[in-house]
Amino acid sequence: MDETHLKIFIKGTTNYFGQIAREAAEIGTPYLKEDNDNVILDYSAVIGISGSYRGCVYYTAPKEMIRKLIIHMGEHNADDALCADFVGEIANTIAGNAQEELGAGFMISVPIVLAGNPGSVRFPKDAPTFVIPIIWQGNKSYLLICVGESITA
């Protein structure tokens, strides 16, 4: 995983907001996640990565932001189930777009959506986790990327 790979994820995210919310998201300064540093907001979606790459991509956002986004899309009733569903969809789209560029060796799983704070999410130990703040209309959400290349011949 190098800079261009991270950029693919980030581009996917900003595109997503640009299209769905018609207002591009801004990227904060990315940073490295420390072991004791749990970045978990109200709704989170984890997508497992396997194949030539291994790890997970994880999107977490505050309830307020998700509600706003949903309303932005024309839904009136942004209940919990819809919010959870939507976060999964965001993560799925981001990882799916990345798959297109990273190739068929990049396999993504169905997102696991976590509502509320599950305490912590386990990240693979052998690859660093990059935290990328995504700011939309003043709300801050995070994309966490922990993807290492599988050991190759």
């Binding site: 190098d2 800079e3 991270l6 950029k7 980030i10 801004e26 990227i27 904060g28 300064t29 990315p30 940073y31 490295l32 660093p128 990059f130 990328i132 703040p133």
Partner: peptide, 18 residues
């Protein structure tokens, strides 16, 4: 400068930390 300009920085930081 934008946020994603810092990607090369965190990459290098990650390597150095390692």
């Amino acid at each position: 400068l934008t946020g994603d300009d810092f990607l090369s920085i965190v990459m290098a930081q990650s390597d150095l930390r390692n």
